[in-house]
Design a protein around this nucleic acid. Structure first.
Lengths: 222, 222
DNA sequence: CATATTAGTGTCGCAGTTACACTATAAACC
DNA sequence: GGTTTATAGTGTAACTGCGACACTAATATG
């Protein structure tokens, strides 16, 4: 009697040539035929919620072991015209190098920039807004930003990720000072050459260092 | 086929003679017969999730219009031995003066201090830990603390609420200075007399003032 | 060799935070 | 009514973190 259909929806963020992008799939059938939707699907009977979200994520993008966090659960009775559906929304961050096969199954799927979204099905516009806001907040006090970059990156690239998501420019020297104080970056020997200018040193995120800081309650202050 | 039972559980916090307290109900039937549990119940077919949580809250305590926030959704396949149950957990804050009728229906219900909990049913210990942590975090940057106090209160009482939940002592002068700077308290004419000592001035929270600050992005820094 | 382009670096002022100790007031007691 | 007792209430100084700000360094390109 009080059984309800339960789905997971996964907001998959990435960095799209300097902008924040999100993966959407196009609906081929009503309701909202032709509109775009957040990838998701039913939770299987023997499957945990996060497990279901990871399965959906892998089906859509082919990637595993990415940052994934529960966002919120949406359950307005009228959110799906076909009947009662409660959806547990997650969001994931994947680095541009990994977004190999957007849309492996038959459905049409593509990346959209967050500042130029198409028409969205159901209450998915609301879910996306909420996910974006959560990401912004999370960025201010954690290191999730690294999840959106490849393993090695330059400081300028890292700063651009932060500026993109926060939607405001950051001061280069202040940005670098804070990173330096945190001591969570390991400089590499290599440099990145691009165009007629000084090459930038590559760094990688040193998770071990970060874990120690996190244990002391020190987080990421941007 | 992928229908799942969906419940809401509501962690109801209050202040218990200077300590953080939570309302629990005793289970009269297996599984976990005799153990204590977070009040909750099934989501009705035509009912939103928050609406369901408010209904449970009112059934247990008789109070409405309290602070209520979605906490997290727990859905491990094995969390309920009777079958698949996904629970959307909420937490609520109610002031001591309002906790009139703990356990209005037949079930045994009582307040427990968070630092001396009984044995808990299902994964409810985990849910409580998570709720406590969320409350602590929330307290650091919002004004939810006021929700746990009666309409008028002394500064010492307010400070005790913060110390109780944060689990650390705060400096009296610094605490008062911050409140003064925020300007969200209105002093009243009355004082509270208790025992052989100087009476403390009563204050009340001025929500209007707070809303203006919130709009500017200024929050509560403890 | 000159030019263009991005990388990389230090300081100073301000604001917010912490640490810290004494006086004020009313009730209770004798 | 004077003394005792208990809690309320108040200011300052050092420190720390944060923002604002401009020039030199290194390589590719033509």
């Amino acid at each position: 009697m009080s059984d309800i259909r339960v789905t997971v929806d996964v907001v998959i963020f990435t960095i799209q040539d300097g902008r924040l992008g999100v993966l959407l799939v196009r609906r081929g059938i009503p309701p909202f035929e032709g509109a775009w939707a957040i990838p998701g699907g039913f939770v299987l009977p023997e499957e945990g919620l996060e497990q279901a979200a990871r399965r959906e994520l892998e089906e859509e993008t082919g990637v595993r072991e990415v940052y994934l966090e529960q966002l919120y659960t949406f359950g307005e009775p009228a959110r799906d015209p076909r009947g009662r559906v409660v959806t547990v929304a997650y969001y994931a961050l994947i680095s541009p190098e990994r977004k190999i096969q957007a849309g492996s199954d038959a459905a049409e799927a593509r990346w959209w920039p967050m500042d130029g979204l198409p028409e969205l099905a159901f209450d998915h516009a609301k879910i996306l807004r909420y996910a974006h806001e959560r990401l912004r907040n999370k960025l201010e006090y954690t290191t999730v930003g690294f999840q959106l970059l490849p393993e090695s990156f330059t400081l300028t690239e890292l700063q651009q990720v932060y500026e993109t998501i926060l939607g405001r420019p950051l001061d280069k020297r202040n940005f670098r000072r804070k990173l330096d104080l945190l001591g969570i970056l390991t400089p590499l020997k290599e440099h990145r050459r691009q165009g007629p200018s000084r090459p930038a040193r590559l760094y990688r995120f040193s998770a071990a260092r970060f874990e120690r800081l996190k244990d002391k309650g020190i987080l990421f202050p941007f």
